[in-house]
Design a protein around this nucleic acid. Structure first.
Length: 595
RNA sequence: GGGGGUGUAGCUCAGUUGGUUAGAGCGAUCGCCUGUCACGCGAUAGGUCGAGGGUUCGAGUCCCUUCACUCCCGCCA
């Protein structure tokens, strides 16, 4: 590279370039003005070079006054720095550039936010001036990391025999799943496209088309509310699908990819090289969640049976159990000497979460085994021995108990597991703990409508002998449906697909869809499956979340170049925005509450 | 749709029990300073305390309403 803007970038010059006349361009990162001597840190994408000018130079007075973040071209010669003035913090720290000439090529107004600063500042201002925010070191590096991760994944996928294909962005609305983003069709008045929530049907059609292994870094659009780890509107998945495979084949490909990627881009250790498989029902019992953080050693146990004993007099729980509640507990190791406040804080915290609190006691032994704590007196020593057998608790350990219906229990024990582990500092932040959650139920009961609905992907293959599936007990049907979870974050879900049309109709009918409904809503898919479809399956790991984990960020906006805010607005581009009457008219749209 | 947190100078924040003229650091402007790398020193400008209403002799501070940002629940096949 050698043009009128630069002969080198700002991270290139070294001691061996001393004496050379060079041209550099970049942003004024920082000035240090000594009155008759001025230091300027010039920054570009690659790094920083210190430039220097003194009052002998006729440009001195102007450069003294130059605004930070102005873009300038500097011409000068590379000078050796004396030993005492070397800056080890930057790669160009052994040299500096003595400014001979300079030119402003992009002037800068007074900054609405500092670029050179480690200070946190408000999301609103960051998103409005994202182009300035992105100049800052941390996020600039995150975005570069994202690019490298995606590039690495692409090449790994090609190495594993996958081909990348694009699928349509304007497609049809689907009745299942998240809210769609709709796009009105001008040529078909009254009709709408939908942006794809995922290229689900397309990737299956690609398998039916005989391409065997497909992947895509696919944009996905879902009109749902945001979270810290969930962008509103759009996000990216590594969408992949394979023909003639079983569940384990998909696992092998993805495990290899994730292990390689996480080894390449992070120094954190992988807790498991072979990711453990945990069934959905086990996960819900032991962790209270289908996205367990396996860095957390705490395990939830069900001890409902204890409260059926005559030598346990915990009457409140006994009464609740008679009306269908269960009791589950979390054991904390060697906590007998923790102060009362430790236990009471957790109980209080649980109440703040809307639960009725967490009862607790500590198992002790002087002559006999006994339980210490507000509810300890309700348990006989035999009951305590049984509890220890059920939960693995030992002398000196404590138990936190919750009693409620299954759903509430899962919720509070899951939250409590996180909370207690944090309080006891049990989570090692220096590891990645992956796992597969498998054997999801095909259907679930809608809490409100009490109707049977698909619990995940309606195109998943049910487990077991297809001839023997008991459709009359739909809640017992498991699917070849799986999630991959890392450190408590759901990275993706996938499935072996149902490629048999007759079975598809049956499953949909359980969820209340007639054959006609299915033919209408999924015409492309169901039609294709009737013309010789291979068995196939796949998965779609979330790219944003993978990068988030690798960059050690807690918020997905830190790895997204131009994110929207929580209200799904782009503060920089002013999107969404109102459109002209002419545009609306062309689209045959009349707004109901036009101001 | 619901709950929590935050909102004071361009930026980040402090502001006691309600009490005189609302402060600091960074940034800006002006001046001094030839080896800094978060340079240093001095001065100046900069405020509808998110907005509206109420209580009070008096509100940044208390109450109500509302707006914005954010975190969480719902939602996310």
């Amino acid at each position: 590279m050698n043009n009128k803007y630069r002969t080198h970038n700002c991270n290139e010059l070294r001691r061996e370039n001393v004496g050379k006349n060079v041209i550099l361009s970049g942003w004024i990162n920082k000035k240090r003005d000594h009155g008759n001597l001025l230091f300027i840190d010039l920054r570009d994408n690659y790094g920083i070079t210190q430039c220097i000018i003194d009052k002998e130079n006729p440009n001195f007075r102007e450069l003294e006054k130059i605004q930070l973040e102005t873009v300038v071209t500097i011409q000068g010669s590379v000078v050796n720095r004396s030993k005492e003035t070397i800056n080890k913090e930057i790669e160009t720290g052994e040299i500096e550039v003595g400014i001979e000439k300079y030119k402003v090529i992009g002037s800068c107004k007074e900054l609405p936010l500092p670029v050179f600063s480690d200070q946190e500042y408000s999301e609103e201002i960051r998103l409005k001036y994202r182009f300035l925010d992105l100049r800052r070191k941390k996020i600039h590096e995150n975005i570069i990391l994202r690019s490298k991760v995606i590039s690495f994944i692409r090449s790994e996928m090609y190495k594993s025999g996958f081909l990348e294909f694009q699928t349509p962005i304007l497609t049809s609305s689907s009745p299942e799943g998240a809210r769609d983003f709709l796009v009105p069709s001008r040529l078909n008045p009254g009709k709408f496209f939908a942006l794809p929530q995922a290229p689900q049907q397309f990737k299956q059609l690609i398998m039916v088309s005989g391409f065997d292994r497909y992947f895509q870094i696919a944009p996905c659009f879902r009109d749902e509310d945001a979270r810290a780890d969930r962008s509103p509107g759009e996000f990216y998945q590594l969408d992949l699908e394979m023909s003639f495979v079983e569940q384990e084949d998909v696992f092998n490909v993805v495990e290899k990819l994730l292990v390689n990627t996480f080894k390449e881009f992070s120094n954190k250790k992988l807790l498991f090289k072979k990711f453990p498989r945990i069934s959905y029902s086990d996960a819900m019992l032991k962790y209270g969640s289908d996205k367990p953080d396996l860095r957390n050693p705490l395990i939830i146990s069900d001890i409902t049976e204890i409260f059926l004993r005559d030598d346990v007099s915990f009457e409140i729980f006994k009464k609740l159990i008679k009306s269908g509640s269960m009791v589950r507990c979390i054991v904390t190791k060697k906590t007998k000497d923790k102060p009362r406040s430790f236990f009471d804080n957790i109980d209080k915290w649980a109440k703040d979460q809307g639960a009725s609190g967490l009862a607790y006691f500590t198992i002790e032994k002087e002559k006999e085994i006994s339980a210490k704590g507000p509810v300890g007196k309700f348990f006989s020593k035999e009951a305590l021995k049984k509890i220890m057998k059920l939960t693995g608790a030992e002398i000196g350990d404590s138990l936190f108990l919750a009693c409620s219906n299954q759903k509430e229990l899962e919720k509070i024990t899951s939250l409590a597991r996180d909370k207690i582990a944090k309080d006891l500092n049990l989570i090692n932040d220096d590891i990645f703990a992956f796992c597969w959650v498998v054997d999801y139920p095909m259907f679930e009961k809608d809490e409100i409508t009490k109707k049977i609905k698909f619990s995940h992907n309606p195109f998943s293959m049910p487990q077991g002998d297809i001839e023997k599936i008991k459709f009359e007990n739909p809640l017992d049907i498991l699917a070849y449906q799986y999630d991959i979870v890392c450190n408590g974050i759901e990275l993706s879900s996938g499935a072996i697909r149902n490629h048999i049309p007759e079975l598809m109709y049956k499953l949909f009918s359980v969820a209340g869809y007639s054959k006609i409904d299915v033919d209408q809503k999924f015409s492309g898919m169901i039609n294709a499956l009737s013309y010789g479809a291979p068995p196939h399956g796949g998965i779609a790991p979330g790219i944003d979340r993978i990068v988030m984990l690798l960059a050690n960020e807690k918020n997905i906006r830190e790895v997204t170049m131009f994110p929207m805010n929580q209200n799904a607005e782009d503060l920089m581009m002013n999107a969404p925005s109102e459109v002209s009457d002419i545009q609306l008219k062309e689209l045959n749209i009349i707004l109901k509450n036009k101001k």
